[in-house]
Design a protein around this nucleic acid. Structure first.
Length: 592
RNA sequence: GCCGGAGUAACUCAGUGGCAGAGUAGCUGUUUCGUAAACAGCAAGUCGUGGGUUCGAGUCCCACCUCCGGCUCCA
């Protein structure tokens, strides 16, 4: 039996248990999901996590009764009668698919019923509007292979405007062993959580007194951020980008022209009222949620010719966005965002080449960081947008062209675009398999219109420029968060803020340790000077090794009498343990 | 923002109405050590914040702040 069917049937059993324990409950929907199932309820009283075992017990009782799932095909009016006290089911009923669509799925031939056939599943005392499929009977469920895990709120039909229902989540597998396996995997994933690693490795923290969503980078974290930024910026400069640097605030009116105050208002910090310090300050200011208008301003300081294009401005830009309190999450969802931002100004003829090369650069960079599993999305016109739909289509087509030219597999995220243009997004998964959008490449015909961004074409006429917005890492915060989870904190050598620890056996070996340290510092690795630390604290070698392992230091070098005599180092490599003695010169060549 | 849970030493946590606790980290001293925790001592607290109930509140009640899991939103 398919596991999805078991999970879906368990959702019905959950509902049946809740119906018995909490009479008068109104039922939402209850699908199978990855690893399990859920059901949404409108309960008259609130349910606490302590109640889950009770519900679980009731479910097991139901399962043991070997209840049969009976599929029934009835008319809409019959269904309306059955669900007369179930407002959510009635709402679903009114929206059920048209006749033709349903007909395809049924062999039912009676013309009177085929008109508007409705599928319901009856299992004991519980009856639900449902297309199925389901198990034949609860006999097929292993009562030890599922568990109710959590209670959460969820808006009815996923809309903030609707009432919030109580969602009960469950995990289910075919065997008890698989279930246990799932929980131990989850416990393992918890150790990879970047928020925990951030503290253990002393990289960053978020301070209650400073504010939610604001990151304080500690020395090792700030160094990591710098290594990543330097590498990215270096790549951009090598690829024809020019570095710019712009203010963090600008007159509010700028954001009116750009459309942000109309289309992005809920994500912006409130304006700064300058008049409060002096009447002569007539303008309100706004802390920037994006860098685009600034780069446009630089572009517009000269009349640009087609010969100057494309122009690519890059900036490690810090933007500030108001994220609703409940959505903040460690490094991956913050209020101050460091973007590896760039804006490319080009002609229509150059657009597809620019998109292709931006994508190529993205894959080169993400590969350098070691990411393999990347999910590509094409995000199209959202509900709130500027410009006209024809131009949107054109922009979407140019992105599609670039994706197809590079033979990339992608999914379409309908309505997921920015308010000014469609985009290609690349998402990376975290330890708990949640996807985080990192790379974004956006085509924009609209801001050039709003800011009157031009160039002079071959015929000497003014022509509208096209803009590409792109952040390949996305936000440095989020990128580091995902990176930490991907590597469980054991970052590749080039990204480790402390790459080598030198551990003298006794104080008489400290002089040699300093010698080794100096030699290491003198050589230059692929990404600059090798960062090493002499561990000369008054502690045992074992203690320092342990500390180095916990800190996930790539190389621990132990130096004592033997090493001193032979001008060598004893190497303990992360993940491999003691790999033996090596001449210092040989080691230096190895890590270069 | 919404639903639910949580907040006690720097960290991890115990303490359910009656003296504020442990382990780790820190500091001081001893120890000079060969691959994942040397030994001893010391110090460490506005029990998230504010109000209330009570003879008495870390513990019960209310409000707010922050965090966690979801929902919605998103780089």
């Amino acid at each position: 039996m398919k596991i999805e069917t078991i999970r879906h049937s368990l959702a019905h059993i959950l509902a049946a248990a809740v119906q018995e324990l909490y009479p008068g409950t109104k039922f939402g929907i209850g699908p199978a999901i990855e690893n399990g199932f859920y059901y949404d309820f409108d309960l008259s009283k609130s349910v606490a996590p302590e109640d889950l075992p009770k519900i679980e017990k009731k479910m097991k009782e139901i399962i043991r009764q070997n209840i049969v799932f009976k599929k029934k095909i009835i008319t809409k009016s019959e269904a309306k009668k059955i669900f007369k006290n179930q407002p959510y089911k009635l709402e679903l009923l009114t929206e059920l698919p048209q006749e033709a669509k349903v007909k395809k799925r049924t062999k039912f031939s009676s013309p009177s019923l085929a008109k508007q056939p409705i599928f319901v599943y009856e299992s004991g005392k519980f009856i639900d509007l449902c297309l199925g499929p389901h198990l034949k009977s609860t006999k097929e469920i292993n009562p030890d292979a599922f568990k109710l895990t959590k209670i959460a709120g969820a808006y009815w039909r996923g809309s903030e405007k609707n009432l919030m229902l109580t969602r009960i989540y469950g995990i289910a597998f075919q065997t008890k062993k698989e279930l246990q396996n799932h929980f131990s995997k989850e416990a393992e994933a918890e150790k990879r959580d970047h928020r925990i690693l951030g503290q253990k490795l002393d990289l960053f923290h978020i301070d209650e007194n400073i504010g939610p969503g604001l990151i304080l980078w500690h020395p090792k974290g700030a160094l990591l951020k710098k290594i990543i930024m330097d590498y990215a910026l270096d790549e951009y400069l090598k690829n024809g980008y020019q570095l710019v640097d712009t203010p963090h605030i600008a007159k509010l009116n700028l954001w009116k022209v750009s459309g942000h105050t109309d289309f992005y208002k809920e994500n912006m910090m409130p304006p700064i009222h300058m008049a409060e310090i002096g009447k002569e300050e007539k303008d309100d200011y706004q802390i920037k949620p994006m860098n685009c208008p600034f780069h446009i301003a630089i572009y517009k300081t000269k009349i640009r010719s087609y010969k100057n294009l494309p122009l690519r401005y890059t900036e490690m830009g810090t933007v500030y966005r108001y994220e609703k309190s409940g959505t903040l999450h460690g490094l991956v969802r913050v209020r101050q965002i460091s973007q590896d931002d760039a804006h490319i100004f080009c002609t229509p003829e150059q657009l597809s080449d620019e998109l292709v090369s931006a994508l190529k650069l993205t894959f080169k960079i993400l590969k350098t960081f070691g990411f393999k599993e990347l999910n590509v999305y094409l995000s199209t016109q959202p509900e709130k947008y500027v410009g006209n739909p024809k131009i949107w289509k054109k922009a979407e087509n140019s992105l599609r062209y670039a994706l197809e030219k590079l033979n990339l597999k992608y999914e379409v995220d309908r309505g997921g675009g920015a308010f000014y243009g469609p985009k290609i997004d690349i998402k990376i998964k975290d330890a708990l398999e949640r996807e985080w959008q990192c790379t974004t490449i956006q085509v924009d015909f609209n801001l050039p219109e709003r800011f009157d961004v031009n160039y002079i074409n071959k015929k000497g006429e003014k022509q509208r420029s096209i803009m590409i917005h792109r952040a390949l890492l996305g936000s440095l915060e989020r990128f580091i968060g995902v990176l930490l989870e991907y590597y469980s904190g054991a970052l590749p050598f080039w990204l480790s803020s402390e790459q080598i620890w030198i551990i003298p056996v006794g104080s008489k070996h400290e002089k040699y340790a300093r010698e080794v340290s100096k030699k290491i510092s003198e050589i230059s690795g692929k990404f600059g000077q090798i960062r090493n630390v002499i561990k000369d604290e008054n502690e045992t070698v074992s203690r320092k090794i342990r500390e180095g392992e916990i800190q996930k230091i790539p190389y621990l070098l132990v130096v004592g009498d033997k090493e001193l005599e032979t001008k060598s180092v004893r190497i303990r490599k992360r993940g491999e343990g003691d790999i033996g003695l090596m001449k210092l010169n040989k080691f230096l060549a190895k890590i270069k």
